[in-house]
Design a protein around this nucleic acid. Structure first.
Lengths: 110, 110
DNA sequence: GTTATATGTTCTATATATGAACCAAAACTA
DNA sequence: TAGTTTTGGTTCATATATAGAACATATAAC
């Protein structure tokens, strides 16, 4: 086990960036970390780790905190999110249920 | 303990939506869940939970998987992410270091 | 049709994320 | 200045997320 947990620079930057946005939004709303934690139903320590950009936080807590301070993920409101999600489901329905390799091991080497 | 883990409808929808996007992007790239898992350095089971919209997945894994299949969080490239993050840092520097309640316990009751 | 592969779904062991209770330093207020 | 509050950084106990395997089902290729 002992997962290596290698992560790309991009995803690390993205998580760190989201953390900074959350902290800024929280400060702008004059909310303490404790208040935000209580509203999200999590501990203050977790809020701190989220704002610091800790990769090992559960995404539910991160998104919840972000939503509370007014950060719209996907830049969509709730209704638009549902609609777009429905569209995604339709798109998914058109795709093959499972991915299959062409099985032709080497046919692009000519 | 036993965290209630109450989450808003919005954040649940957002996570579920992101999961669908990941699955669609993966299928479109003809990538199996196993391949995606190996590239992200996680297990296939975790990939499935991410695609299903499980709130209890660590955000590092989710963002890493999303990045691999080409989903740009915040709709920014890596460079723009760094820049915007830097801008966020500047904005943060201007804000007060700590949030303080007005301390007037009840002055809005007249 | 058959075969091979991907996905879905359980289960268990274990690494670890989380909450709680600290303390210390920073920062805001009077 | 002192006094209050927020924040940051520990440590520790424990709930739990994760990996891994094993199996069944579904699906695509042949």
């Amino acid at each position: 086990m002992t997962s290596l947990q290698v992560s790309s620079q991009y995803s690390r930057d993205a998580v760190a960036h989201l953390g900074k946005l959350i902290r800024i939004a929280r400060q702008e709303r004059h909310m303490t970390a404790q208040e935000l934690a209580e509203r999200a139903g999590i501990s203050r320590g977790l809020v701190q780790r989220i704002e610091k950009g800790d990769l090992k936080c559960n995404i539910g807590a991160v998104f919840e905190v972000a939503a509370i301070v007014g950060i719209c993920l996907f830049e969509m409101d709730e209704k638009g999110l549902k609609q777009h999600s429905h569209h995604a489901a339709e798109k998914l329905a058109l795709l093959p249920k499972s991915v299959r390799k062409t099985k032709k091991v080497l046919d692009d080497d000519f």
